[in-house]
Amino acid sequence: MTTNQKFSLNQEVVQGKNNIVSEMGEEKVMLSIENGKYYNLGEIGGEIWDLMQEPIKGDQVVSILMSKYDVEQTECEEHVISFLNQLNEESLIEIVANAMQWSTN
């Protein structure tokens, strides 16, 4: 696992360890024990965080969000990638691996 690469939608991500998460109204706030910083994930950010309890591919996150929110796919993809890169830069998530690519012979 690594926490310092740029994220793309065909990769799996999972919540990092050593974070304490709390609800604040409809938003989600978090304390990173590792770096001592507090974060506000916001409402949709909190929803994305919940989706990452188990390893999940970025494009699955986008699909789930598109089923619940009124947003175009391109916009949703850009925003999810941007948000996950923010989390990754703060070492709050772990990028598990590239998705396996199948080929037919």
Binding site: V29, K37, Y38, Y39, N40, L41, G42, E43, I44, G45, I48, L65, K68, Y69, D70, V71, E75, C76, H79, V80, S82, F83, Q86, L87, E90, L92
Partner: peptide, 15 residues
């Protein structure tokens, strides 16, 4: 009915 979308942002709180 789908909810309104807002760009998710990570806010670092000054605590």
């Amino acid at each position: 009915m789908k909810k309104n979308w807002q760009k998710p942002e990570l806010e670092v709180l000054d605590v």
